[in-house]
């Protein structure tokens, strides 16, 4: 399920805006992400990063702008249809099936992308493709030993791992990660950073993250947002020295994201 598809995946946002009443949470944002790269989006709290992910995944409708997946305009597609097109996302606030086992959580994700996701006949345990994708996703996120545990019994870090396992189990081409490391311990975070690095090959990864060490380790390209707008974009080294970015992060003082670490 996780093998690279032969088609090179790409996603592009053109002039994306989202208006909440009087607040312009995302203002005229254009960015793209391609297969075999990790594109990180950083910015202070309230910069519009999560809203951007919600627009790309279809959880929210855009106010203006368009979203193109490969060569297809998906702006008007709902979240479920975009997911079926190969966009997988994780949530900043853990969004899992709390009353179900870890295995069932990942299995549901795999089922959603199987040939007959709403099959009425037959038991859920009998689909070998779904089972294989489930095992694979749990293996990669290190949750195999926790398969039979109820999701609400997991530690916070493990729930974050499960959040990613569910994305993997859908076999996505485009992966949108909304602060995957939020609230994780150092050890757990290390594993997830390695996992995200391994996703680069065969996937297009858009990563929103506050952990600057992780961002600079992982990102092939970096976009910085502030007040809903893109203030800088490019290679991490260029962005790091950008004056606007320094100002956004540290006022007028010296230093830039990543320096503190």
């Amino acid at each position: 399920m996780l093998e690279a598809s032969t088609i090179v995946a790409s996603m592009r946002a053109n002039g994306l805006s989202k208006q909440f009443g009087g607040l312009r949470a995302v203002a005229d944002v254009s960015l793209d992400v391609h297969q075999d790269e990790i594109h990180a989006v950083i910015g202070p709290n309230g910069a519009g990063k999560s809203t951007l992910i919600n627009l790309l995944s279809g959880d929210m409708n855009v106010t203006a702008g368009s979203i193109v997946l490969d060569d297809r305009d998906v702006t008007r597609f709902g979240a479920e249809r975009r997911a079926r097109c190969g966009i997988g996302r994780s949530y900043q606030k853990t969004t899992i099936f709390q009353q179900s086992t870890v295995y069932e959580n990942a299995r549901l994700a795999a089922q959603a992308h199987s040939k007959a996701p709403l099959k009425i006949f037959g038991d859920v345990v009998s689909d070998t493709n779904v089972n294989a994708a489930t095992h694979d996703a749990l293996e990669r996120t290190g949750l195999t030993s926790r398969a039979d545990t109820l999701a609400n019994q997991l530690s916070h870090g493990e729930q974050r791992q499960l959040e990613i396992a569910m994305v993997l189990a859908t076999g996505p081409r485009i992966i949108l990660l909304d602060e995957p490391l939020a609230g994780m311990g150092t050890q757990e975070a290390r594993k997830i950073v390695e996992l995200i690095a391994s996703l680069r090959k065969g996937h297009a990864v858009l990563l929103v993250e506050h952990d600057m060490d992780a961002v600079f380790e992982l990102a092939d390209r970096l976009t910085v947002m502030q007040d809903g707008k893109v203030i800088a974009t490019g290679l991490p080294q260029q962005v790091r020295t950008d004056p606007a970015v320094r100002a956004a992060y540290l006022g007028t003082h010296d230093g830039a994201p990543g320096d503190a670490a």
């Binding site: 279809g58 099936f97 549901l108 959603a112 009425i120």
Partner: peptide, 28 residues
């Protein structure tokens, strides 16, 4: 049979967490 089928599990998933079920790709 319905409740034990993939359909039934998807139905319960949509009940437990509609947002996630939707973003996984289930046609709610």
């Amino acid at each position: 049979m319905l409740v034990r089928s993939p359909f039934g599990h998807a139905l319960a998933a949509a009940r437990d967490n509609e947002r996630r079920a939707r973003s996984l790709g289930f046609p709610i």
